[in-house]
Design a protein around this nucleic acid. Structure first.
Lengths: 162, 162
DNA sequence: GTAAGTGCAAACGTTTTGCAATGAA
DNA sequence: TTCATTGCAAAACGTTTGCACTTAC
């Protein structure tokens, strides 16, 4: 279950990680894409971490290992990962795109602390079911959805932040 | 109920509109802000319309009445309206901010058709209640939220679009 | 050898801002 | 008279792209 506890320290299930890398290899082979030093560094850094990262943060981490990787390459690689389903891209309320590894994960929704920007994930089957019902009332067929709850996390409430 | 049917032709309840303008006056007086020709045009144009508008669209409509209004002024005015609660700002999946008048309206969520970009609004008390419960499980205090269901509207399903 | 990938810098689209001129109170 | 507001153009922001060079296959 390690890959399902987004708030813990890094600890992605190695089996999930291998599966992800294999899936990526297949995807790249199929499209005639090449594996490169930069790509591998970015993918590894990204996948072995949990929760959302923006490109700036990811670039910073990647550059600790290889100072000469450019942000253009990170952007390009993240697009690739998003396309093949290994990363999910999100824009919360600030203007940036954030990516989250999608390795052996269920769909989940988000609690976003407006004081410390922490993002907590949760799942709720019952809400999902009601969403389908609400959509059906409008003859709407849902393909995907986003539920974001903004407010204060426990810590920030305790510290009296706003 | 006219102000609750976002898909109909323009038809905002005049009483709601007056209330909104009064609220804005109060807000501006309190902050020492001045009323100007440009501000009034933008506010009137914006408030007497329903559904989401991006700045470009709003600017276009405003310029039909006064060709010399700049986009900077529209941006500035919309920030103001968002601050005082008369407009709600949203970023859906493209990069732009859209504003929706908030005059005598309840909170509501969105069904977004990915084929024709139509936005249908809905409300669901039961979902709201479950959201609170889910948040409470994480000791999280919700201030506001977003629920967006993406997929195909009835029309686009019928036309076999994707 | 060939095509894909890289880094750089320039371009992009949206939004914000500095500034001198204008206008509301 | 004073200070907020305006329009303009320039800057800022996150992201994308054209290009010459490098690298994987």
């Amino acid at each position: 279950m390690s890959s399902h506890s987004p708030e813990g320290p890094d600890g992605v299930d190695p089996a999930d990680l291998d599966a992800a890398r294999a899936a990526l290899s297949r995807f790249m082979a199929q499209r005639g894409l090449k594996s490169t030093r930069q790509r591998d560094r970015i993918v590894d850094t990204f996948l072995s971490q949990e929760g959302y990262l923006n490109v700036e943060e990811l670039l910073e981490r990647v550059r600790r290992q290889d100072a000469r990787i450019s942000s253009a390459t990170v952007y390009r690689t993240m697009k690739l990962l998003a396309e093949c389903g290994l990363a999910s891209a999100r824009r919360f309320d600030d203007g940036q795109t954030r990516y989250e590894p999608q390795v052996g994960r269920h769909h989940h929704d988000h609690l976003i602390c407006t004081a410390c920007t922490r993002i907590i994930e949760f799942e709720d089957e019952e809400i999902e079911a009601l969403q389908e019902q609400a959509a059906a009332r409008h003859q709407f067929r849902v393909t995907h959805h986003k539920l974001e709850l903004y407010g204060l996390c426990a810590d920030c409430q305790q510290r009296g932040r706003t």
